[in-house]
Computed example of a mutant assay.
Amino acid sequence: MSPETVVSGEEAAEVLAYAEPIAENVMQGFNEGNYTMYSRDFSAEMKRSLDAAAFERNRDLTRSKIGLYVAKESPVVTDAGEYIAVNYRAKFEGEDGVALRFVFRKDDPSHELHGLWFNSPKLRG
Rank of each mutant, 00 (worst) to 15 (best):
V70Y: 00
R59T: 02
D107K: 07
I84F: 08
H114G: 03
E4S: 13
S43M: 08
E112I: 02
E24F: 05
V7M: 12
Y88P: 05
S110L: 13
L123H: 07
R105T: 03
A80D: 12
Q28N: 09
D51K: 07
S64L: 01
G97T: 14
A85D: 12
N34V: 11
N58Q: 07
M1E: 13
V70G: 01
N58G: 10
R89C: 04
S49V: 10
A17V: 02
L123C: 03
M46A: 02
E32C: 05
P121E: 12
F102E: 11
F42G: 07
G33T: 02
S74W: 09
N87H: 09
R124H: 13
V86R: 08
S74K: 15
S49G: 02
K122P: 02
V7I: 15
D108N: 00
S39A: 14
I66V: 09
V76A: 13
G9A: 13
S120P: 03
N119H: 10
A90Q: 05
E20Y: 05
N25M: 13
S49C: 06
R57W: 08
N25Q: 15
W117I: 09
R124T: 07
A71R: 02
T36K: 14
R101I: 07
V7R: 02
Y18H: 13
E95Y: 10
E82D: 15
N119W: 14
D108I: 04
E93S: 07
G115S: 04
S74M: 14
A80P: 00
E45F: 13
D60C: 03
M37G: 09
P121A: 11
A12L: 10
N119Q: 12
T36P: 02
S49E: 01
R59C: 10
A17N: 12
P109A: 15
